[in-house]
């Protein structure tokens, strides 16, 4: 059945979201049409504001509506440590853990040589600029423990070598709550390799 134009248009737009197919988009559109008055307008306004006001922080490259972002503006955070993450979502994961009180830097991706994504595509130049004044003593590379994350971490370690900063990487191994019996071979061997004395 042919849908009226505005519905078809809305379905097309919502299907652009990752993980949303045409069926799900149609369901969402019909839900919106039955939702209390003003719901669609509120959502539309929120999306418009999102596009208009969110940009990259000029310091750490996190996505923010205010520049500098709240993490860079927070005077209680330590200036001598920068945690380098792949995405703003990774930064939020660290914030949820509530353990880290230093600064962040968002790369917006990782080196992916097989996809042709090189250092130019990442926010590495800005990171180098931030290290120039000598305040930062440690850079914690918190990239994913996959080949791309490893390549990014090793690249940064080599790039920052000689700049007078300690470059560290998050520990790898079996996650908390895992039973060793069910741990996969790769994680287990990484855990063994990175074991520490008690």
């Amino acid at each position: 059945m042919r849908q009226p134009d505005p519905i078809r248009k809305a379905v097309q737009q919502l299907s652009r979201f990752p993980g949303i197919g045409e069926k799900s988009a149609t369901r969402l559109v019909y839900w919106l049409l039955r939702a209390p008055e003003g719901t669609a307008q509120e959502m539309g306004a929120a999306l418009e504001e999102l596009a208009a006001s969110v940009k990259e922080c000029s310091n750490c490259c996190n996505l923010t509506a205010s520049d500098p972002c709240r993490f860079c503006a927070d005077t209680k955070r330590f200036d001598d440590t920068i945690c380098v993450v792949e995405s703003p979502q990774d930064l939020l994961a660290f914030e949820r853990a509530a353990e880290y009180r230093g600064r962040f830097h968002v790369l917006h991706g990782s080196l992916s040589p097989l996809d042709g994504i090189g250092p130019d595509a990442l926010r590495i130049r800005r990171l180098l600029e931030r290290l120039r004044d000598g305040t930062v003593k440690e850079v914690i590379v918190a990239t994913d423990p996959d080949v791309e994350g490893d390549a990014t971490a090793l690249y940064l370690a080599r790039l920052l070598d000689g700049l007078g900063v300690v470059v560290s990487r998050l520990a790898h191994g079996i996650s908390v709550g895992t039973e060793i019996e069910y741990a996969d071979a790769v994680s287990l061997s990484r855990a063994l390799e990175n074991r520490r004395s008690l």
Partner: peptide, 23 residues
């Protein structure tokens, strides 16, 4: 997994050489 790269993922040259060889 029969063999996972280990040392090849701890050195920048080796990881680049590994990916180059694969490609």
């Amino acid at each position: 997994v029969r063999k996972a790269p280990n040392r090849a993922r701890t050195d920048f040259y080796r990881i680049a050489a590994m990916l180059y060889g694969c490609e």
